[in-house]
Design a protein around this nucleic acid. Structure first.
Lengths: 231, 231
DNA sequence: TGACGATAATCAAACGAATGATTAAATCAT
DNA sequence: ATGATTTAATCATTCGTTTGATTATCGTCA
């Protein structure tokens, strides 16, 4: 027999056709599980169950487990691009022309703060970050896509911002490495989340804790900018 | 009904005790493979083959795959403790008493540089770091051991050093977070190694590249210390 | 010292369970 | 009705673990 999939009718009005709905559900479920338990640690059956889909759907829509991983990477690239465009997009236009150093420093603060909130504080972004971090530690073609679509463009933008704030050329080795250290400061709180909460005596890294982290990072940025300007 | 196990006489030249040798070989092989491919991505057969041991040895010596993971964690704790003791151990005695600010800053530099070389530059330390990072993203009892044996004691020491260099109390939230950002700066170059090499146009992160990274981190530390002293 | 017996350790083989993939039939949408 | 999609069942393979037999190690007693 079959149960009437009455439970599957929560909000059919919102989404598109059934096929696309299945694809999206699979991607979201896979993204979450891959992030939580890793690619190898997640079975296709788990994914299908979480997505309320059939196991065969994975092969049908993505060709297999590996194809689903690629689709997840593509999904992340699109999502991050949208977020990034919204975050530092408005300032992108101004980024092309000249800019006051203090203005650039202010934007640097805003970007850093938003970065912290998204990467560390936002529970919804956890699967994304976790997925990327896993891919980083074991490079596949999925990482290739993420690097081209996320890492490089955003790193370049950040370097450009650094140039506006300090005067150091964006393409210099020194600037690029420095930007990496800034990114690392933030990312580490996600990576070593477990160690941080224990050491800090925090039950969780919520909005309040994220704010404290952001303040620390911004203070570091100020100190680094000030030092860089003196050179 | 038995085959003459004539093949079992390849190298009677046993070095140390056979049992401990097998255990160590299994741990080292597992550590390497777990770090490279992840816990779930590594099969017990792979480990046994790499260690030139029998599959059953894993269950015999460690109770199972999970027990081998715990043994790896314990092995790391011991190894890192030895390295840490050698690195900042000599200064541990001086750490208890008063210390000149500039002296503390110098030690800070030395520790950071050594940290970079070990985590990022030393190919032999790769499996260790990779293993820990994987455990961090998926907390198990193995992480518990590593946190208590590695993270907390070293973080505390670093905070104390920060206090000597800046005057800010080691146990303050600000200091602890700042130290995390310093650690994160370094660790990120290992985590995002793939992204870094591509962006920097490096073929690899060797001694020369590690030196450049260390210089950048030390410059950041100087800037942060200077800013912290002014408060 | 030298043989003996107990324990420790290794080994090849096989177990059941779970994996990703595949199939053909059933169902859906247009 | 036809093509797109979902479903249930089955595929071969690989997984971690277990097994019983074999070999190595070592303390004990003659």
């Amino acid at each position: 027999m079959k149960m009437t999939t009455s439970t599957a009718a929560p909000d059919t009005s919102r989404d598109t056709s059934g096929a696309d709905q299945t694809r999206l559900a699979l991607i979201q479920a896979a993204l979450k599980l891959f992030g939580q338990k890793g690619f190898d640690g997640t079975s296709t059956r788990e994914i299908a169950t979480a997505a309320k889909a059939n196991i065969g759907s994975i092969a049908y829509h993505f060709g297999g487990k590996e194809g689903l991983r690629s689709a997840c990477a593509e999904h992340i690239v699109e999502a991050v691009s949208a977020i990034a465009a919204q975050a530092i997009g408005p300032a992108a236009g101004a980024l092309a022309g000249p800019m006051d150093r203090e203005t650039a420093r202010g934007i640097l603060h805003a970007v850093a703060e938003r970065f912290v909130m998204t990467v560390v504080g936002n529970p919804q972004a956890v699967p994304f970050v976790q997925f990327v971090l896993r891919e980083l530690s074991q490079p596949t073609t999925a990482l290739e896509r993420i690097y081209d679509g996320v890492f490089e463009p955003n790193h370049k933008r950040f370097c450009l911002l650094w140039e506006k704030a300090t005067g150091q050329p964006a393409a210099s080795r020194q600037t690029m490495l420095t930007v990496f250290t800034i990114v690392g400061q933030v990312m580490y709180f996600r990576i070593a989340r477990e160690a941080v909460t224990r050491r800090m005596g925090w039950a969780d890294i919520g909005a309040a804790e994220s704010k404290a982290i952001a303040a620390t990072v911004c203070a570091n940025i100020d100190a680094m900018v000030a030092a860089a300007r003196e050179e």
